[in-house]
Design a binder for these strands. Structure first.
Lengths: 181, 181
DNA sequence: GCTCACATGTAATCCGTTACATGATTCT
DNA sequence: AGAATCATGTAACGGATTACATGTGAGC
């Protein structure tokens, strides 16, 4: 069985207390979405796969007449998650993100000065809004986990918020440079 | 015809002087690779598509007995590129990167303290190496374009290098915090 | 009563990667 | 002579997204 990062996301979210596929998607949407997007159509087949492999146990957990599944980790599932967490070798998994905004900036020399400025402003606005979103929506939610001793989600959220802030400042300086001419 | 970011990467690289598919891949490898990865197997079909759509012109440009193609932008191609560069609406294209390292950090509460520290150290080392790579390989190359008035590739490279530096420092502080206990 | 959130899945499609296949030139 | 680089493609595969399809519960 071939376990991908999305498999471990699934296992990890269940370990953090998400029980249903829907709950996993919801939790991912407000936390890991920025560095590991998932869609519902991915989650359900993945849950089935993980159950077939013996890493998850599925119970029926209907809510009234609405059917619902409740998943829990098996010992094998817990072990697989821990092994993956320890197996990180930088270099094996190079950083790579896809960002259409940066791609445009890369080619911005093709634009007249005015449009260059507009593009940089748009990118700064985007960083600003992304940072605000993380600070206002993600950090408070993940901080509430800290009382339970789960602190890394909040750390990652703060790292993300601070990094967006840094990029915003960087782009603001570039904007000022462009305006000087 | 449906133009994707990779289509504009192709057009943009040709505008910056890359002539063959191989040259586009090579240029992308040392510049846009970090925020928009491409593979050769993507470039060639894309070039064919863009030529069929009239955005590129293809000439034969053999080197000895070795066949080679030389592409240039048509007016339509230039217009399409400029239109895309101006069309950036933040919100329409949300930032999203996939990072297995951050995903692991998010779930790091599952690990014993010692392994948590090792993971943070590995992530810092990765940021450090990525930053060094950009500073040493990408910035010098793109800076050499600045004499020709092409300055955004170097700006993007510096933004990347500085951001990796910021993340490295952030993780170093986290590392110190973890060691204090 | 209506709308939104909860909840689970499948099908079609798109996009990208790895691996394969081939061959010429340049450098050591 | 051999290795690395230049150069162009195709085929198979895998992984993720969008859209489709269906139905219940809770709050206004």
């Amino acid at each position: 069985m071939n376990l991908k990062p999305s498999s471990f996301l699934t296992l990890g979210m269940i370990r953090l207390g998400a029980r249903s596929g829907y709950a996993i998607k919801k939790a991912a949407h407000v936390s890991t979405q920025f560095f590991w997007p998932v869609s519902l159509a991915q989650v359900y087949p993945e849950l089935a796969r993980l159950e077939r492999s013996g890493l998850l146990r599925r119970r029926d957990d209907p809510h009234g007449a609405r059917r619902r599944a409740a998943y829990t980790l098996t010992d094998e599932g817990e072990q697989a998650l821990l092994a993956w967490l320890c197996a990180y070798a930088p270099g094996a998994t190079p950083v790579q993100f896809r960002d259409e905004g940066l791609l445009r900036l890369f080619f911005a020399d093709a634009l007249p000065a005015q449009d260059q400025l507009a593009l940089v402003q748009a990118l700064r606005a985007r960083a600003s809004r992304a940072g605000a979103h993380v600070r206002e929506q993600v950090v408070p939610l993940s901080s509430s986990l800290e009382q339970g001793g789960v602190r890394y989600p909040a750390l990652v959220a703060r790292l993300a918020a601070d990094t967006y802030g840094y990029i915003e400042d960087w782009l603001a300086k570039l904007e000022a440079d462009l305006l000087e001419r």
